[in-house]
Design a protein around this nucleic acid. Sequence first.
DNA 1: ATGCATGCAAAGACTTTGCAAATTC
DNA 2: GAATTTGCAAAGTCTTTGCATGCAT
Lengths: 145, 145
Amino acid sequence: MDEQQVLERYLREHDLKMTKARQTILDAFLSMESHVTAEHLYEAVRQLDPGIGQATVFRNIRLFTDAGLAREACRDDGPRQYEHAWRHAHHDHLSCIQCDRVIEFVDGPIEAAQKAVYERYGFQPSGHRMELFGLCPDCAAKQRS
Amino acid sequence: MDEQQVLERYLREHDLKMTKARQTILDAFLSMESHVTAEHLYEAVRQLDPGIGQATVFRNIRLFTDAGLAREACRDDGPRQYEHAWRHAHHDHLSCIQCDRVIEFVDGPIEAAQKAVYERYGFQPSGHRMELFGLCPDCAAKQRS
DNA sequence: ATGCATGCAAAGACTTTGCAAATTC
DNA sequence: GAATTTGCAAAGTCTTTGCATGCAT
């Protein structure tokens, strides 16, 4: 089941409608990389259809989140960021604090250790978020020179 | 070296001044638990001195962050949150998605596995943030009944 | 036809900034 | 005395909402 179908199904189940604007916003979202802000998405959408308003983008990215296509990414500051959530395996982030490059990874030992923590405290897991910060090899090299 | 001294030293090194308002805001911050918003802090500060303005609280919590006393906590939404950063060992969070209870923990195996990830990608570590979400034992029990 | 969706602009939530007066060193 | 700080209010960001109209079913 691809994203298009997931959304259509969600709409059907909630008595919502597929509109031209909604379809355009979905197309734009699917064509973009992870860590999209509403502003980025709005710009991309305007390329496809200049008539679509910003509020509609905000309303729909939230709808995509409810439908399971998008997920809010953790942030310290600035506008809210979204990632793709469908057919996009769970992953964690390794970010360069200098150039903002982001590497997505999944690490078996970390996942296993997290499970142990849940058990230790008697929690029932529902998800997690992890971000590692550091200097990427390129930036570390630049800094040394 | 305690927080008071850390701040005084930071002020001296940056040619800044210790004022009555600044001291009051520091006292309020130190008396509060982790995950303080500027609004919470403002309320606490007003108890101590109703004459202090909100902008001053915003300006000073940021100063505390620069001085290494506070640290911004990761959030999806809502106002920015701060944690204590001085003499407060690094820790991760385990949060209940129902009652918002937060447990702070440090896990050796996770820290070790993170180090391995840094090495795998050639990154120079500078910090990380991890938050595990789930249902705490109490909320899980309530949900079953 | 019915009722959700849209665009616009206004309002909201949160944070920062400009400025004159007050305070610190 | 020189320079930082403060309180206030205004402005800035980012996001949501109210409403009349347009569309999808």
